[in-house]
Amino acid sequence: MQNLVEPSAAPTGLRERKKRERREALIDAAQTLVLERGLDAVTVDDICASVGVSTRTFFNYFASKDDAVLGVEEFSPSAGAVQDFVAGGPTGDLLDDLQVLVADLLAHQVMSLERVHRAIKLVEREHRLLARHMWWIENLRTGLIDAFDRRRTQHPFVPEPELLAMVVMALLRTTTLEWERLGRTGEPVDHLGSVVDQLRALVCPGRPPGDPGSPG
């Protein structure tokens, strides 16, 4: 990315960074306190006191204590990426275009793996959190299926949208695991291409890795 930024954009970037840092501090505090005391023994006031913010500030970031513990936030492809995909782009090849969608999702996945792992640990311990966690996953899944349905209306393809949603989920998880396996070099999205090549090797065994043009 070029380091050419309009002067008026700099304060916005600084504000966004500070908002992100405060949000992460609230997640860290919520997860740490719940790991120490248990979910029912921790209040929003406790979390706020740990970070040094007001409850009003807390609710600017999270709808509930449970959401702070899970680090719940909107997780979906950008509107531009969805619009391009629905219109049959950016390449016209279904798997390649799915890869672009997954790359867009990974670019917006801002919660660190440490926080994700703590959230998973807490879901396993605090069963009440499971329903909220499942809602978050289902929200992503249904949004993807809607995009796939809309594309298929304009540009027919064979695979069912439900199957494509499962492929996206698998690519997200496998790419992150690959990133971890290789020592967290670069960003997770840097490893997406090799994971997609593995998928191609499964469904198109005679096709060279990275070769575009699979049937849609």
Rank of each mutant, 00 (worst) to 15 (best):
L113Y: 09
L113D: 13
L113M: 14
L113Q: 13
E114N: 15
E114F: 12
E114G: 15
E114K: 14
R115Q: 15
R115S: 15
R115N: 15
R115L: 15
V116R: 15
V116L: 15
V116E: 13
H117M: 13
H117I: 06
H117K: 12
H117V: 06
R118V: 14
R118M: 14
R118D: 14
A119G: 11
A119M: 12
A119I: 10
A119C: 10
I120F: 12
I120N: 08
K121Q: 12
K121H: 15
V123C: 10
V123E: 07
V123Y: 06
V123D: 08
E124P: 01
E124W: 02
E124A: 07
E124K: 09
R125D: 07
E126T: 09
H127W: 03
H127I: 07
H127R: 05
H127D: 05
H127F: 05
H127K: 07
R128K: 10
R128V: 06
L129C: 11
L129P: 11
L130W: 11
L130I: 07
A131F: 09
R132F: 07
R132Q: 08
R132E: 09
R132C: 11
R132W: 11
M134N: 14
M134W: 14
M134P: 02
W135Q: 10
W136A: 12
W136C: 07
W136I: 05
W136Q: 10
E138P: 03
E138Q: 13
N139Y: 06
N139L: 06
L140C: 04
L140W: 10
L140N: 07
R141V: 07
R141K: 13
G143L: 08
G143I: 05
L144E: 11
L144W: 14
I145A: 09
I145P: 02
D146W: 10
D146R: 14
A147N: 02
A147W: 04
A147V: 02
F148D: 01
D149M: 01
D149E: 12
D149N: 08
D149A: 03
D149Y: 01
D149C: 01
R150F: 02
R150G: 00
R150M: 06
R150E: 08
R150I: 05
R151M: 05
R152C: 02
R152P: 00
R152E: 03
R152S: 02
R152F: 00
R152D: 00
T153C: 06
T153S: 01
T153R: 02
T153G: 01
Q154D: 02
Q154N: 04
H155I: 06
H155M: 05
P156A: 10
P156K: 08
P156T: 10
F157G: 00
F157R: 01
F157N: 03
F157A: 00
F157W: 02
F157E: 00
V158S: 03
V158T: 11
V158G: 03
P159F: 10
P159I: 08
